[in-house]
Computed example of a mutant assay.
Amino acid sequence: MCYSAQIEADYDKFVREWGAIISIKRFVELFWEKRKDGGWSKIPKAMREAFRKPHGEEGFELAKLVAEGDREQAVALQAGLDAQVARLQRAEAVLAGPKPTKSASSDKRIATDKISRAPRNLDDLTSKEPKDHDTRIDPGIYAPVMIEKDGQRIVVPMRYQCPLPGWNEKTERRYAGTYNARRDNLEKSWGKLFGHRHRIMIVTRFYENVSRHKMEGRELATGEKEENVVLKFDPRPPQEMLVACLWNMSLGADHGTDLFTFAAITDEPPPEVLAAGHDRCIVPIKPEHVDAWLSPGPNNLEALYAILDDRARPYYEHRLAA
């Protein structure tokens, strides 16, 4: 399954190349909600940066939210760093005393680790130089996606992890893998969305967890423990992939705000992905199928399966992720 991906967050490109409009209202709602509930880090930096310079009157509100959200995040990161420094000092004082404790040793280890990460987090927040992880999404993170409504393509932000219709938070926690929808399960578990709510995510790379011995094409050695590694897969030639996805909307599920979510469809992998140790792969559809995919019909599922079968088929080059 695709557990992480490099997204396209250039909204001008959505407008220019796909004739889409931007749902400013939905972006404002999301940015405002994530500022309030402490979820600012769930919005990728590239997704925020695209709105830092306002375009039109509506854009000024978004630009203001971005600036305020980043400023609040910086304050929170600094406060967290100060708290860990104080925690480290207390732990070291106990360890230097006559009765060192396991708790103090644990506090020192945790605080040291968090202190080492804090400058990187602050630098990531304020850096003007684009980095790969600025556009990378994992389950639970938001991404701009393209849907169609009343004949108009619209770009809206949605969370990458899709509870099925009728689920509550408890059910979603129990079934946490719904950021991907298996092709062979579309009419079963995903039947209320497949043929009804389709969308496209534009990605340039995806990441997978694989076992090291599978990546190396061998069996586990006697006594060897299974080791996980993360691979990144780049399409060759380099290209933007139009990933087929399903989406859902849960009324009031995000602290009273409607929650928009999506899942990427996955299928059997091409040979090079299977040889690298992974048994699933995202499905990039061809540009000529975008209209038909975004305007599905539940009475003609065969046509939708045909789109998934007639997919774009780049060669996926892999290497270990940093």
Rank of each mutant, 00 (worst) to 15 (best):
A276L: 06
M215H: 14
L242A: 06
M241A: 08
A221P: 00
P269T: 13
D234R: 08
H289M: 05
G252L: 06
T257R: 15
M215G: 00
Y207V: 13
H196I: 01
E272L: 04
N228W: 05
I265D: 05
L301A: 03
I307S: 15
L304E: 10
T257A: 15
G256D: 11
L220Y: 01
K232I: 15
T266Q: 02
A264D: 02
H289G: 02
P237C: 06
M241D: 06
L259V: 05
G195E: 04
P269W: 07
K225H: 11
I285C: 10
L304H: 08
L304I: 07
I265M: 09
A221E: 15
W247Y: 14
D254K: 03
V283L: 01
T261A: 13
F260I: 12
L308T: 13
P296W: 07
P238W: 01
G217Q: 11
R218E: 03
R280T: 06
V210W: 04
F233N: 08
L242P: 02
A303W: 01
L274D: 08
V290N: 06
H198M: 08
A264N: 08
L246G: 10
P270R: 12
I200L: 14
G252R: 07
P287N: 07
K225S: 14
E224M: 01
M215C: 01
T222S: 15
R236K: 11
N300Q: 08
E226Q: 09
I282P: 05
V243I: 15
Y305D: 12
C281Y: 00
I265W: 02
I265T: 04
I202D: 00
N299R: 14
E288Y: 01
A264P: 00
V290C: 09
G195F: 09
A276I: 07
I285R: 04
S295F: 03
R199N: 15
K214V: 01
H289C: 11
L259Y: 09
W293E: 10
E288I: 12
L251W: 04
R199I: 12
F262R: 10
P296M: 09
G195H: 02
N209K: 05
L246N: 04
M201K: 00
P284G: 08
G195I: 11
E288D: 14
I202Y: 03
P235F: 05
I265R: 09
E302T: 08
T257G: 09
P284Q: 08
V243S: 09
P238C: 05
F194G: 12
E219V: 00
H255K: 14
P296Y: 06
F233Y: 15
D258A: 10
T266G: 03
M201V: 14
R218I: 04
V229G: 13
V243T: 13
T222V: 13
R197G: 02
G223A: 10
L220E: 06
A253N: 09
C245M: 05
L246P: 08
A306Y: 02
A292T: 04
P284V: 10
G252W: 03
P235D: 04
A244E: 06
H213W: 12
P298K: 12
R280H: 09
G252Q: 07
N299T: 15
F260Q: 09
I307M: 13
I285H: 07
K225T: 13
I285L: 13
C245V: 02
T257F: 14
